[in-house]
Design a protein around this nucleic acid. Structure first.
Lengths: 342, 342
DNA sequence: CTGTTAGCGCGTTCAC
DNA sequence: GTGAACGCGCTAACAG
């Protein structure tokens, strides 16, 4: 790696440049730039003028070295391109707004190895807290988190051995509820479409919930299609349903690991001239925008994605600021949304 | 949290803690932790052992204060929950992988005010470069960027007065191409669905391209529906097409500001028993996953979202490292994807 | 209300 | 191949 050719560039001004121009000490500039510090109106105005003239921007990395507060928290999500998780990110951002904390976001593409790298990269920048998705991490990742000395929140799941605090729900129970609801409507021959299980923990929990609920109902739970690596796409959902119909043509209802694959399946069925739900019923998971908008509208599980983010961030700021003692576990809501596709 | 039974610090260890434990100076630890530094194998092993025992993680913010390199670049996108932009983010991440630079991502929710805040928040952390979406910024935001002394890349657009470097395409030209292609197929009565114009620059450019192309073809360009604030949702697309059909029932083809609103329109038409494209044709913009998967598959404009990110990051690293002189402007491809909906 | 002193934890630079 | 001094830009703590 080469150095920056630093002859031409007007060096970015420092705080003492501002101080000199305003005829005060650097410390006073520091105070003037901070809310709630006592600086006389006149000095503050003089300082602000110097700031504007020089185009000065505070160097927060230097400041945080001194104040021991970096002013940001880290969040790691599987995919940035998934509205469930980006809703969670929005929830975090919104809850953080008033605290002055900034969000540093990373995404793993559903890889725990990538998660481990990200955890280390984040920790190097000394976040004041960290929010993770799910409870599966590499041993090294887990160890780093435990030793970091900062609050850790695992979300979107209920890990059996949490690192620290949890905001989530049981993906298995949610899927069980969906199966029960549909069984109560009279469906008997259930199929399931999901990704290969190893990588997407939440996906495999949903699948396990599917099997578990059917067994409890004394219904067969063998119509399982695993297709591709997570995130299982719309197109993969389409191909999987074809697969399903070839192997088990009399399947009555297909449950999918997410609305996205369910949507792909729905469209493919229509393309083949099948009517949903008359010929085959389809349900998804996650209550994405598409589930409410497609035709027919899709039955799914609504999960409080935004609330997960919001509550995780609130719990985190509580832990950081040491006000009150945040609960170790917050269980978030989920509910079945029955629509036209079942 | 954890108590270390050595009378030592529960505080996170520093480099000199590692050094003491390994019986070397802090400087040697610093070297051992950096690739390509000359440290004897034995000392390095001893150091690594101490690092592991203490669970030491490098403090990069302290390091960058000294080295004058923060090791990250900033990117600002309108929405994290939009696969076009998250594809760009992926392109950036991938291109950055080998450089050791990390990506700090922020999103504006299509608000320039929020963009201004974000620019300042980013600049406070001294990124080595910054990637923006579009060429519209607040005056203050623009000034901060100009004075930051770092390379700036504007993407997804071709600003008339770029701040620094550009990787993008003309949204207007792309929409013109789509209109021309559909006019060549025989369509005459065109309608357009988009958001209110002020906020989404790319959206208003697309709309301008729509009007411009029709005028050149001597076709009326007055069937314009503006609906809601960006990002215009699927549901809004559905409502807008209803609006369109009430006002201009004989519309032959509806172009939408993005595939998402086009999808909403498509589903709503089907819900009302209209056949697409026989009764009405619909086209989108962006070539989202949904366009290739819905039924009927949707005609749209494919934009090289991933490539925009990748090339922006490459240009940025070139500028940062000072190797070669990156072109000021890179124009990325777009093309019409004709599918079944037109 | 404002200034002074003394670091924060690391990398640069130079010595050996 | 290794170490010691020094300073990066800022703020905590204590004066005044």
């Amino acid at each position: 790696m080469t150095n920056i050719p630093d002859g031409k560039m007007p060096e970015t001004p420092t705080m003492s440049d501002v101080a000199r121009r305003a005829g005060v000490s650097a410390m006073t500039v520091s105070r003037a730039l901070k809310e709630g510090s006592h600086v006389s109106k006149e000095t503050r105005e003089r300082i602000m003028q110097a700031v504007n003239e020089l185009g000065y921007v505070l160097d927060q990395s230097a400041g945080s070295l001194s104040s021991r507060r970096t002013g940001f928290i880290a969040a790691i999500i599987p995919s940035i391109n998934n509205s469930n998780f980006s809703d969670t990110a929005r929830g975090i951002t919104d809850a953080l707004e008033e605290t002055g904390l900034q969000l540093l976001l990373g995404y793993t593409n559903y890889s725990v190895e990538r998660e481990e790298e990200l955890i280390e990269a984040m920790l190097r920048r000394r976040p004041e807290g960290i929010i993770l998705t799910g409870g599966s991490h590499t041993p090294k990742g887990r160890r780093m988190l435990e030793q970091a000395g900062i609050p850790v929140i695992e979300t979107w799941d209920r890990p059996s051995q949490p690192i620290d605090k949890v905001v989530g729900f049981s993906n298995g129970e949610a899927m069980e509820l969906l199966v029960e609801t549909l069984a109560a409507k009279g469906y008997r021959r259930f199929g399931y479409i999901g990704g290969t299980t190893a990588r997407d923990t939440r996906g495999s929990q949903r699948r396990a919930g599917f099997v578990c609920a059917l067994e409890r109902l004394n219904l067969p739970a063998d119509r399982l299609i695993s297709f591709g690596v997570p995130p299982i796409s719309m197109e993969q959902g389409a191909q999987a349903v074809v697969n399903m119909l070839e192997r088990w043509p009399d399947t009555q209802v297909v449950l999918c690991v997410s609305d996205l694959s369910a949507f792909g399946a729905l469209m493919e069925c229509q393309r083949r001239g099948m009517k949903v739900p008359e010929d085959i019923a389809i349900a998804g998971f996650g209550d994405y925008e598409i589930a409410a908008c497609c035709h027919p509208r899709m039955t799914t599980i609504n999960v409080d994605c935004y609330g997960i983010g919001r509550q995780a961030a609130l719990k985190l700021t509580q832990a950081i600021q040491g006000v009150g003692k945040p609960e170790a576990l917050t269980v978030t809501d989920f509910r079945v949304i029955e629509r036209e596709s079942t």
